[in-house]
Design a protein around this nucleic acid. Structure first.
Length: 202
DNA sequence: TTGGTGATGTTT
DNA sequence: AACATCACCAAA
């Protein structure tokens, strides 16, 4: 069966709804003529009045795409060596985005392995936000792509994930708003990242 | 299996 | 100076 692309309407939801709704969807990326596909298994929502969001301090050249319409890629570079891939949500003026933290490889494994280099364990291929960007060849060149139109980077309906297979927790790797349970993942999926949720403090 | 640490460059 | 991370190594 043919994969159906996600519509603009789908992306124009709050980042919280979108983060959960993106689980099971397929990420498609054409890299050097090869179609790479991954099933989204872990996401995090970042929103408007969220101190952990890049958009919190207002519009800057980097975060401008977050303030635009839903359905665009937001790729940033962090820790001096990693890229992270986000999908913008909501509508023009509302800065919301969902960080894609992990995917399960569906197609194009060979190319992903080449891009990632030698690995000890199979799941290390794509079980983290920086890792999946490397495996899919996603860099800042892929920032601000319209996922509704692009032939190189887009999302499709993928697989339905029942609520009973979805779990949530606080987000990973942040130092503010650590109590917000805005991370979503598919239970028992081996490609979910191993980062530790923040905010398990008193 | 867990935990500590260094690499690295963009943004503010 | 901080940072929405990862790979490495050591200890147990």
């Amino acid at each position: 069966m043919r994969e159906k692309r996600l519509t603009r309407t789908f992306y124009r939801q709050s980042s919280l709804t979108l983060a959960k709704g993106l689980l099971g969807k397929y990420l498609h990326r054409v890299y050097a003529g090869t179609m790479l596909v991954g099933k989204i298994v872990e996401t995090e929502a970042y929103g408007m009045r969220d101190p952990a969001s890049h958009s919190f301090k207002g519009r800057t050249p980097r975060t401008e795409v977050m303030f635009g319409d839903g359905g665009f890629s937001y790729v940033y570079f962090t820790y001096g060596m990693h890229h992270c891939f986000n999908v913008t949500g909501s509508v023009e003026g509302n800065a919301e985005a969902v960080l894609i933290r992990a995917v399960e490889p569906i197609a194009g494994r060979g190319v992903m392995q080449t891009l990632r280099g030698a690995l000890k364990r199979e799941q290390d291929l794509t079980n983290g936000p920086g890792k999946l960007c490397q495996a899919f060849g996603i860099t800042r060149q892929e920032n601000r792509i319209d996922l509704v139109d692009s032939e190189e980077l887009y999302l499709t309906t993928g697989e339905q994930v029942p609520d009973s297979e979805i779990a949530n927790s606080t987000r990973i790797g942040i130092s503010v708003a650590m109590e917000e349970p805005w991370r979503f993942f598919i239970k028992n999926n081996p490609y979910v990242s191993k980062g530790k949720p923040s905010g398990t403090k008193l």
